[in-house]
Design a protein around this nucleic acid. Sequence first.
DNA 1: CGGCTTGTTGATCCCCGTCAATGCCGGTGG
DNA 2: CCACCGGCATTGACGGGGATCAACAAGCCG
Lengths: 236, 236
Amino acid sequence: MKQYDLETLRSSVLFQDVPLVLLDQLITHGSKRRLARGETLFVQGDKALCLYVVLDGWVKLSRLKQSGEDIVVAVYTKGESFGEAAALMGGIYPVTVEAAEDSIVYQVSAKNISEAIRTNPDLAMAMLAATFRHNHELVLEIEDIKGHTAAQRLATFLVALAPVTHGPCSFALPYDKGLIAARLGMKPESLSRSFANLRANGVTVQRGNVTVNDLDTLKALINAERGPKQKPIPHT
Amino acid sequence: MKQYDLETLRSSVLFQDVPLVLLDQLITHGSKRRLARGETLFVQGDKALCLYVVLDGWVKLSRLKQSGEDIVVAVYTKGESFGEAAALMGGIYPVTVEAAEDSIVYQVSAKNISEAIRTNPDLAMAMLAATFRHNHELVLEIEDIKGHTAAQRLATFLVALAPVTHGPCSFALPYDKGLIAARLGMKPESLSRSFANLRANGVTVQRGNVTVNDLDTLKALINAERGPKQKPIPHT
DNA sequence: CGGCTTGTTGATCCCCGTCAATGCCGGTGG
DNA sequence: CCACCGGCATTGACGGGGATCAACAAGCCG
């Protein structure tokens, strides 16, 4: 286990509140796992034996609907975790997980964790905290879907992705536009049109690279009432 | 504390996995609280000191958006709980809670619970289980919003509300249609039209009383591909 | 009775999904 | 080296679902 990965684990959402000594002891039972882009980690319905922390890359969580299509529940990257619920309760995974890019995940047996929880209340509180955070994210997501247009949701996504919080910036999109669209609950065509709308607000895209003239303009857009229709500006 | 309320607490989502002796000891520190319809329990931003279990009635959880309107996050009834996250983490409530009907809630100080968690791992596991369940509900809700029409969401709501699982039935709507609409993420006008659509599938409404000819017909509707437009049938 | 709230209905608009055509890019094989 | 091809992104045309605005009916309570 490299020092760098240790740092990632220590600052992960799941483990950030766990005392260091306890954590170091916990993760001796885990193992690193590499995933090639497109590789499946587990599928919906599998018996849940492990929980995971993303060390690098991006992984996609999706649910298979009866109608056949699958909908994207979340896309996680470095420091985020998944599978805690199913694994600790000894159930089955409610989602399918696959790598959206070449990725590395850290895998911990649920049995070890749940034993540790029983003997260490701090760990229990830390796990509760992590779950509550997940919970809060979901509530925000519901709020987002119910009250925003596609362009506003895209703006939210970009703001979260930006390396700074104010002024101009430029960064790369982490994965395919198709997956971004699914993550935002829309079709690729709508994503394209949303980008076109944002062009009028100082957002340009060139081959997976985004440039934002002013992040505050974007933030204002998110909270704005559905503004008057704006003309999309043609590509390039 | 009446025997009846004790039963409700013991079978509540939050406490159902907690050993009886421990639970009985826990709730000696709590208190019952009556809410008149429309009364506010706490508002978004309040310091979170207690968590709550609904003993009777219906309470509404909503979030105030910057744009002024508030959106309904959830509506809870007997046996459901809220405020665990904020209270245990010592934060502030992220939502406003008010009674949608005359209601009774059970109020437990977070300090007592978190002390109990530290000394009793079973309680920790039970709380984790409750939170995970809550989590799963939220995921289902997201799935519901993303993939269903207004009429399908209404059908889901009615099926969950029905006192039986098959065949015909009749029951009362628990609260205002306006709130039902908000709960389902739509406007009152749309709810009205959704009811009109369901009339063709054996659903009639008369002053807050719903009659369903066949619940299985409704369930089939929920999973159906977006069927061909059906003519709404006029009211009465 | 007359105001007030709540629910229904109609007309219209806008966002987004669908279907289809085109353009851009990377990879493959002659 | 370049022609060809398949996948992804963009753009246009069209339709449907729900929001909005407005009118109206039905209870409720003074």
